[in-house]
Design a protein around this nucleic acid. Structure first.
Lengths: 139, 139
DNA sequence: ACCCCAAATGATAATTATTATTATATGACT
DNA sequence: AGTCATATAATAATAATTATCATTTGGGGT
């Protein structure tokens, strides 16, 4: 909590209860929620908060590199407070999005892409799709 | 042309001039246009065609696996008539999206992801971002 | 070649996610 | 406590996409 306060301060973002609650919510989940989901989840605690505030807060967090925006091919964005670049995998059955860490071949892939294209790489978004172990069982 | 006609027939899609022109346009470009771009580009030849037809045609082509939909993080989708799975790289300066073929480490990455997550993989979307060689020069 | 009908088109309305606007409220610094 | 720049809330506006529905048309059967 105090931690998050300091992070916001370090980025010259005013610390407001709304921002803290959104940031905290994102830090405490691995579910990659959308703006709408964040809004409804926080609505109990902050019934007066506007959806626009959620969007603007997310925008500020993304711009300051404190949160990343995911584009898994749905009708809306999802957000992830883990800003370390990492691939995601989405279950096409239950629609959950799971983080992947320490995927070694990503570094190799980056090198190959950079050499092949001569682009100066800044970042990447790696999305995999399939059926998760749970959904494979209860067919 | 006849080629495309047969492809549509094979998928039980009625062959209409609108569909052929959209499909042909996508087959003859590597620019990954959006629905809007496709619409305006075809509008000269087919001034009566509706934007809704473009969307419905693209939807049909995507559903039949004849075209893939890209989600590079813009406000609209882009389309690619090359359905062979391949990574894309987007220049954050000129916004062009370039195809990458024969990226060997992708297969390795797939294997690693499948083992790590135990998902049954269906497909993936691999997007890289950076500055293209042309944009690196005329800074 | 004509009929038929399911499917496609065109025009437009509706929907949905996101962004802009603006008056009011508030965080943070003196 | 006072000030001011910034954030919030409410709502309007925008933009992409999808739905609706009356009309047209492709293509198989006769």
């Amino acid at each position: 909590m105090l931690e998050l306060t300091n992070i916001l301060k370090d980025h010259n973002l005013k610390v407001t209860p709304q921002r803290l609650s959104i940031f905290k919510m994102l830090k405490n989940t691995t579910a990659h929620p959308s703006a709408e989901t964040i809004y409804t989840s926080i609505h109990e605690e902050y019934p007066t908060m506007s959806l626009a505030t959620v969007y603007k807060t997310l925008d500020a967090l993304v711009k300051h590199g404190l949160v990343q925006q995911l584009n898994v091919g749905e009708d809306s964005y999802r957000y992830d407070a883990d800003t370390l670049p990492h691939p995601h995998i989405k279950c096409t059955s239950c629609h959950k999005v799971v983080d992947m860490y320490r995927v070694k071949s990503v570094e190799l892939l980056r090198k190959e892409v950079a050499e092949m294209t001569q682009f100066k790489l800044s970042h990447e978004q790696l999305y995999f799709y399939g059926t998760c172990p749970e959904c494979q069982n209860h067919t």
